[in-house]
């Protein structure tokens, strides 16, 4: 019974997102046929791919009931570590990439440790983390002989290949990376024991703990996952732009959270899906690409449609579920009354 009521809206939500995506194609494609050119669409994906990649893994964090706002600063940290390790420490470029990803994982583990084992609120820890890692990125950039505002460029062709190579001559390689990551995230979240544990920890941490799940380790692992995904996004972005900068991706936090929420993940935890987040991230990305192309909207105004989309969607959803909310509230009241009566009798 509980399963049925829970499953239906989730399915509807994905359907709604697909509808929204189709609507975008119809509207943008109808206004400007250029929008439908595959080559152009594929190139536009480069601009929002980091959002897509990171948001599907931040979904894990939010399902456990946490939030991760440090991922954007990890993008810049990875980028600058790759640049400095390669240029100024003479590391092989792939070794530099590995070092950067390991550092990011360590950063995620640190924040995850504080959230899971010390019981600090996730928002505060990752807020501190966002200051810390963007600050570290800046410090790493001072180790370089290149001025930080210029960025480190001139990467070897093999590194640029990640974003230059096109599968079948059309699909950029980084889109394939995204798809592979999406499949991994989907399988991990919805088809494995680990995924079930992530959900259970989000629904009720003590219940998870009592049923023998090491909930702390699960929570910590989600932060590592999101940090590693941010590092991968950082590698792709560095390769695509051809420059390593410490402030890369600094404005992406809000976009990432928007994508996760729009994808149907509850910010209180326990509900969400990798596919939904990916769809939402693509919707946001296409909006950012289509608005300027088709309606000549200045790119600086793009915060408005995305903000409106977010507000309309969440308010609409809350309206739709209104009877539910009322029923839940009534139940809560009842339970509270029962609880207070009990404690009263105990005292008596």
């Amino acid at each position: 019974m509980k399963n049925l009521t829970k499953k239906r809206p989730a399915f509807n939500w994905t359907a709604f997102l697909v509808l929204l995506l189709i609507l975008e194609f119809v509207i943008f494609g109808g206004t400007n046929a250029k929008f439908l050119k595959p080559a152009l669409l594929m190139t536009s994906a480069n601009d929002f791919l980091p959002i897509c990649i990171i948001s599907i893994f931040v979904t894990f964090v939010m399902i456990t009931g946490g939030i991760d706002i440090q991922v954007a600063s990890i993008i810049g940290l990875t980028s600058i570590i790759i640049g400095v390790a390669w240029q100024d420490f003479g590391l092989n470029i792939w070794a530099a990439v590995l070092v950067a990803i390991l550092v990011a994982a360590a950063g995620g583990a640190l924040s995850g440790f504080f959230v899971a084992y010390c019981g600090v609120q996730a928002m505060v820890v990752t807020l501190g983390g966002s200051f810390l890692y963007s600050g570290l990125a800046l410090l790493v950039s001072t180790l370089s002989s290149t001025e930080s505002y210029q960025g480190i460029s001139g990467f070897p062709a093999s590194f640029r290949w990640i974003t230059k190579y096109k599968v079948f001559g059309v699909v950029p390689f980084q889109i394939c990376i995204f798809l592979v990551l999406l499949v991994i995230a989907y399988l991990l979240l919805h088809k494995t024991k680990y995924g079930r544990k992530v959900f259970l920890v989000g629904v009720n941490q003590s219940a998870a703990e009592y049923s023998g799940i090491n909930s702390r380790r699960i929570i910590m692992s989600t932060y590592i996952l999101s940090a590693v995904s941010a590092a991968i996004a950082g590698v792709i972005l560095t390769s695509y732009l051809g420059t390593a900068k410490s402030d890369l991706g600094s404005g992406l936090t809000m976009n990432i959270i928007t994508a996760v929420v729009l994808g149907g993940t509850l910010s209180t935890g326990g509900k969400g899906s990798a596919i939904g987040t990916a769809l939402a991230a693509i919707i946001i990305g296409l909006l950012r690409f289509g608005m300027p192309l088709c309606f000549k909207v200045n790119t600086q105004y793009l915060d408005i449609p995305i903000g409106v989309l977010l507000v309309v969607v969440v308010v609409g959803r809350s309206l739709a579920g209104n009877p539910n909310v009322i029923a839940k509230f009534a139940k809560m009241k009842e339970r509270f009354k029962g609880g207070s009566a009990k404690s009263g009798s105990a005292e008596a």
């Binding site: 939030i67 928002m123 809000m254 959270i257 928007t258 929420v261 910010s267 209180t268 200045n298 600086q300 105004y301 793009l302 915060d303 408005i304 449609p305 995305i306 903000g307 409106v308 977010l310 507000v311 969440v314 308010v315 809350s318 309206l319 909310v325």
Partner: peptide
């Protein structure tokens, strides 16, 4: 209104108004 009456999670709702206001500033 959004947070207390519509019961939208506050982080999400204010994130939305944040984007709208920032855009209105540009306009």
């Amino acid at each position: 209104w959004g947070v207390a009456i519509m019961k939208v999670p506050s982080l999400i709702f204010t994130l939305g108004t944040n984007g709208i206001l920032r855009g209105m500033m540009y306009i």
